[in-house]
Every structure is written in C-alpha cells, then in structure tokens.
Computed example of a mutant assay.
Amino acid sequence: MPPGNRTVVTEFVFLAFPTRPDLQTLLFMGVILVFTATVTGNLIILVAIRGDARLHTPMYFFLEALSIIELGYTAAIFPQMLVNALQERKRISFGGCGAQMFFFLGLGSSDCFLLVAMAYDRYVAICHPLHYTLIMTRRLCLWLVAASLALGGLLSLQITVLIFRLPFYGSSGVNHFLCDVNQVLKLARTDTHSEEIAQFIASVLIVILPFLLICVSYVYIITTILRIRSAEGRRHAFHTCSSHLMVVLLQYGCLSLVYLHPKGSWSDELDRLISLGYTFGSPIFNPLIYSLRNKELKEAIAKVFRRRTG
C-alpha cells in the first residue's frame, strides 16, 4: 500500500468477544461476577488486616500490598471488558490500549517481584527467627514494596513504548479480550524481531529470575524446617509458607505458559484461553488461598463480619 493511502490506526477492535446476544450477556455476567468477587475479597483482606493489631507484621504488610496490586490490576482490565461485553463494536482507543497494556504488565510484574519479597520474609522468619524483627524493619518492608512497583513499572513502560512506537495502519483487530502484548505486536506493519527479543528478555526478568530467587529461598527454608526436631514445629513452620508457595506456583506456572512458550507452538485460541484463565484466576484465587489457609486471617475476617452484622 502506498504511504499516502495508509489509514493510521486510532483505535483497536477486540475480535474475541462473542457476537450472539445471549453469549454476550453470559460473558457480561461472568465478568461482573469475577470483578465483584475479586474487589470484595481483596477489600475484606485489607479491612481485616488494618482492623486487627495482631496482623500488623511484615508478612501481612506484604499481603496488604499484594491485595492493593490485585485491585489495581483488576481495575485496569475488567471495567473495559464490561463495557465491551454489551457494545456492538468492541473497541478501545489507541491511547487507551497503551494505558491498559502498561498497567496490566506493570502491576502483573510488580506482583511477581512482590512474591520474591514475601519469600525473603519467610526465609528470615524461619532461618533467622531471632533476628527477624531486626532485619524485617518497617523501612525495609516499604523499600521492598516500592522496589517491586518501580521495577514492574519500569519494565512495563519500556515494553509499552517499544510496541506503541511501531507503525500501525490498516488492520486494527486484536484477537483477544484485552490489549495483549503478543496480539497487538502482530498488527505492527514492520519487522518486530527486536521488540520480540526485548519482550522475551523482559519475560525472563519478570518470570524466570524472580522464580529462581524464590526457589533458592525455599531451598534454605525447607532445609531449616527439616532440621526442626518436633513434628509440630515442622508442621507450623511449613504451614506459614504453604499459602505463599501455592500462589507462587499458580502465578509463575500461568505466566510461563502465557509468555515463555515458543512462538507458534499453539493456536491463538489456546493462548487466549490460558491468558484469560490467568487474568481471571490470579486476582480472585490469591486472596482466597491466603484467607482459607491462614488461621489468624480467618479469625480477623470473621471479626469484620461480626462487626457488620452485630
């Protein structure tokens, strides 16, 4: 197409939404159900932790930060999906797509880095219990959360800028429910090899490196737990880590499938299904896992409900 006849893309259209009215309504109800459950679950955790002085410890401080990140992650995705679910034309502006991608990637990346901070907290608590309060100070906890957000934001900004500086014209159909990196990149009308390499490097920094750090932490943690003589002591020590470990396996397992599989190894439909499962599952299952497997948190949540109904 001659340069003068190119139509520059000013908006993107999501192609994955169903066209049948009954399926659109079903999707809308599903999204609003997940959105409500996610917001409610994370807000309950925040209120419970703030309202119980016993939970004002580094472990729960990180859990608060995780819930806040999940709320921001949810706000970056679900409102736009709700709007598009019932609209005839499922679209988003060019700038809106860039903003959604930035927050989606940034908060998701910050989530990964924060899980490393939580692993370090458990490492200090189990391997160096006598020095725990000296090491895990309020200042260090704030610094770890701030560093997680800064690293996530920086990597997300670089990827978003790299992608949205590319030329887009002609086709504007994104084969997804949101501004997914892989799908938007396919629409660029130029060679994207450099951007794909940058995306892979960012994925390694966001997924592989943090996961390896967490694995190293758990090698020391498990070694220390096995040295504990009493069975009750071992059980209690492992129980304090089990929720975090489950969230780590869920988070990094899904992210590896979404961003680290070889290009063209499976269909767009399967890629979209896995991505959607992670997008819907992560913010709703993370608070659920922590609340169901933590006795102190369950008691604090029960107090919240008693105050509201009493």
Rank of each mutant, 00 (worst) to 15 (best):
S93P: 02
R165K: 14
H56L: 10
L23R: 07
L154F: 14
L288T: 06
D52T: 11
Q199A: 07
N286D: 15
M101D: 01
F177W: 05
T57C: 11
A119T: 09
Q251M: 15
I45G: 00
G264F: 01
C215N: 10
W266L: 06
N294I: 02
I208T: 13
A125P: 01
A48S: 07
V174C: 02
F62R: 00
S230T: 07
F285R: 07
A188I: 06
Q24V: 04
L273D: 09
V34Q: 03
L43I: 14
L26A: 14
Q24A: 06
R235D: 11
R165A: 13
F104N: 01
K263M: 12
R50K: 12
G310E: 10
P287C: 03
R20Y: 15
I214N: 01
R122M: 14
L66S: 03
T137H: 07
M118H: 05
T38L: 04
S265A: 09
S265L: 09
Y218C: 06
F104S: 02
L288Y: 05
I92V: 12
I163H: 02
P18I: 06
D191C: 15
T74D: 02
G95F: 05
G264Y: 01
P58Q: 04
N286T: 11
F78P: 00
L245I: 08
L86N: 05
L205F: 05
D268Y: 07
H236V: 14
V248F: 01
I92C: 06
L157V: 09
